[in-house]
Amino acid sequence: MRTASDEDTTELAAARTPGAAASGSLLQVSGLHSGYGNLPVLHGVDLAIATGQTAVLLGLNGAGKTTTAQNICGSLKTWAGHIVFDGQDITRWNTKRCVGTGIVMVPEGRRVFPGLSVGRNLQVGAWSQRRDQDWVDQQLEQVLTYFPRLRERLNQLAGTLSGGEQQMLAIARGLMARPRLLIIDEASMGLAPVIVKDVFDIVRRINADGVTVLMIEQNVGALEVADVGLVMERGRVVRTLVGDELRDRSAVSEALMG
């Protein structure tokens, strides 16, 4: 899915921070402070995600997971700290620039466009790629292969879809924006376990096809599909879980409760 512009960015990035390209780290967040209005929420978040990984940002309500995500995708102002994406410092970037460089967030609560059809929702998702209509057509096919149920409902109003279908649509819409890093915020919220399993399966497939995924979750089950688990508590990442730790129930509960 790489284009000429992607390669330019990587070369420039390599020139800027040789270490980053070498270690395969796609996203590096260091010392992030942020919040809403006068209310601070993040007190120095540090995390790193390598290209091709599925990372899960785990934590309870109020831990600052969504705030972190919003900082990464440019919709919330960073007070202090740095966000480096593919070697480029994107701390001060707004959403539009972040989307342009391949950081796409699927927001909490799905937030599909209720008055537009499924097809039109996807069309809007591809807005940043509208100059490359061939790619868009191709991606649309790809996305409908991931989500066959959406293909059936292409002309249906998004507001009339079920919760699970809307979640699928939201992810599909995000994919239409050509993400290198797809951030999925609370995908499993309010969905039946069977649907949640479907969502996680999709995440596996997307990841396998080359998209780095960052999932924001309260649901520990998300660790099943994760390569790295980042546990957040009160505005900081307090624990990083890798490899076997992710499957080890006791390590996980200790990280969350301890």
């Binding site: 927001p107 937030r111 008055g115 039109r120």
Partner: peptide
């Protein structure tokens, strides 16, 4: 269509550029 989307949910629209 982008205009309609932005009208229905500006935040979500913004997230897609």
């Amino acid at each position: 269509v982008a205009l309609l989307a932005s009208a229905q949910d500006p935040f979500a629209a913004e997230l897609h550029g």
